[in-house]
Design a protein around this nucleic acid. Structure first.
Lengths: 340, 340
DNA sequence: TTGTATGCGTTATCAC
DNA sequence: GTGATAACGCATACAA
């Protein structure tokens, strides 16, 4: 009569339920499930049967608490509606899932402040690792990351200083290279259209500017930037605005393929011949850009591979091993097609 | 000398660290953080300061274990590369995050078997709720769901029987309506192109078939289906195949806008006039379809709203409240444009 | 190969 | 308004 009654009514089957069922101790069940080789063949079989019979499902919270490992990884990306990050997420998922790690996805909406807040929240989960986009974090977020001392890999960009583990490619170089390509093709009045002015977009813009300045051809009024998210419709509108303020341009470097497709469509409507009157180049190598008429020159970025490699590197770090390299440049591929 | 040494080296600040710091008991700190109104004003202030000072971060695993609530929601979608589900995920994230719930995302790759496996795995997290796509689950998965007795909302489709909570629209109706629209426009030899043959695609196909049968115009050889994922490139290839086996068709119902765009591009290359020689209709209302030349007729689907509503309904269910409705039909919108 | 004792960090319960 | 105590379910350390 002095017994306390259990707090929960009908609780889930636990390790000891299974243990009692066969008449061994709970720890043996635990071992049979986690390190089967430590348990005798016969017993293991009986345990497996009992687990099946009783419908035992391990409790991750208890495991995390006892082992001080959560088997979860926080993944912070700027957007869930941008193909670039979605592809990266898919790769991360494909890599971490088989390794037994759960992704905790956070959408920072391109805001370092929101990122800091998410980081704070997600740290409560005791993540074993962190995958974070770029290097543009608030000071507080940087402090949090350091204090937490959790293996972290930065994605998409390459560290310019320090030795933070990172997987990506040089945004600056890719912008420079595409502009250089257009210059080599003979275009002289090259415009730049950008949306969603995140750090990576800005760096590609710097590459664009540098290439044109070197050639003595940079003209600020040929740059058009819009903070709203990139879309096909925005590309169409931006072209109209561009032709108002810089009617003489002979090529457009669109910061991504959505914009480029919008520009292409709008040119068709305005009966502007591509590439004769205006060349168009996009960015990111989306599927559609290969099939439009004309097909779009673009820079293919290794976003899936970045996710794969970043997750793989993180797995190494979390296992306490030293990765082969902690700074992985996956490069980019210029796909020259008919629009230039 | 008989003291055991701690297992972990430098552990995180805990509730009792904060408690010791001020000289109160741990439970008081817990209350101050979770139910501040139960703690005196003065003490609360001191606690807040100490929390700040010591950099205390709650441990979710411990909380989940002690309270038997994980504050997490499992979300199972067929794909992370399909805009449809990504938009839905974004909406779910936007709704659950502010409510303090964490999403555990699972990518089933359109496979009920994979879904069952993920479900089994994710049940280990003691999710407080489940958001799952459609109704096409393995018997074992259905048993798991029932046994777990966790609030669950099905997304994208509407239950045809039973009273499972669901938010979506009638896939069948939408397919029927678009076909009916083409018939009313005067098209008589309407083809159907589909990829990624998931249950929703198949239901739209049934709608297509029903409408044509009613009109006495159904011809099996005008249907072309491909199991691989939908893409613009696939649309182009499918058009070529279609024109081989059904050269006389006068309209194409593409099961989604990617395919439709590919068909459009391919028609341009083959100098097929749209809509004069061939009408094109897509599905899902992607941004690009509004801007192509000609613009594409499509069916806009409320995927963001589905995510919002499903998550909101789940929040109600998890709170033990009865939602206003447990079967929410969000409908669809036929956008008639120039390609038909 | 298996078991015992103990603790992970928090909250539920009941008492003061 | 605050505290003591006992779980929550599992894994670590060590013993047998």
């Amino acid at each position: 009569m002095s017994e306390r009654k259990p707090r929960t009514g009908q609780s889930r089957t636990t390790l000891s339920d299974v243990a009692n069922h066969i008449g061994v101790s709970a720890i043996t069940i635990s071992r049979a499930l986690n390190k089967p080789e430590l348990v005798s063949e016969a017993l293991r079989q009986r345990i497996d049967d009992a687990v099946q019979l009783l419908g035992y499902v391990p409790n991750r919270a208890a495991r995390a608490l006892a082992s001080a490992k959560s088997h979860s990884v926080v993944v912070l990306v700027p957007s869930l509606s941008n193909t670039v990050f979605v592809d990266t997420l898919a790769a991360i998922h494909d890599t971490l899932q088989p390794a037994g790690y759960q992704m905790l996805i956070g959408d920072t909406r391109y805001s370092p402040q929101a990122e800091e807040k998410l980081l704070r929240t997600y740290l409560e989960y005791n993540p074993d690792g962190i995958l974070i986009t770029g290097f543009d974090h608030t000071p507080a977020a940087q402090t949090l990351l350091q204090a937490a001392a959790i293996p972290t890999v930065h994605m998409m960009e390459l560290a310019e200083q320090g030795d933070s583990p990172c997987v990506g490619f040089s945004q600056y170089d890719s912008g420079y290279a595409l502009t250089r390509f257009l210059l080599d093709k003979g275009y002289r009045r090259i415009a730049f259209l950008a949306a969603q002015l995140d750090p990576r977009t800005l760096k590609r813009g710097e590459g664009y500017r540098a290439a044109l300045r070197e050639a003595g051809l940079y003209q600020p009024h040929r740059e058009l930037a819009e903070a709203s998210p990139s879309s096909v419709g925005l590309g169409s509108r931006l072209l109209d605005r561009l032709l108002l303020q810089a009617p003489d341009c002979d090529a457009v470097f669109c910061n991504n393929d959505d914009l480029a497709l919008g520009v292409l469509f709008q040119c068709q409507r305005r009966h502007i011949a591509i590439p004769q009157q205006l060349a168009i180049a996009g960015f990111n190598g989306l599927d559609a850009s290969a099939w439009s008429n004309p097909s779009l020159t673009t820079v293919d970025t290794p976003r899936y591979d970045i996710g794969k490699a970043a997750a793989a590197m993180l797995l190494q770090l979390m296992a306490g091993k030293a990765p082969a390299a902690t700074r992985v440049d996956l490069g980019y591929r210029l796909l020259a097609r008919d629009s230039t």
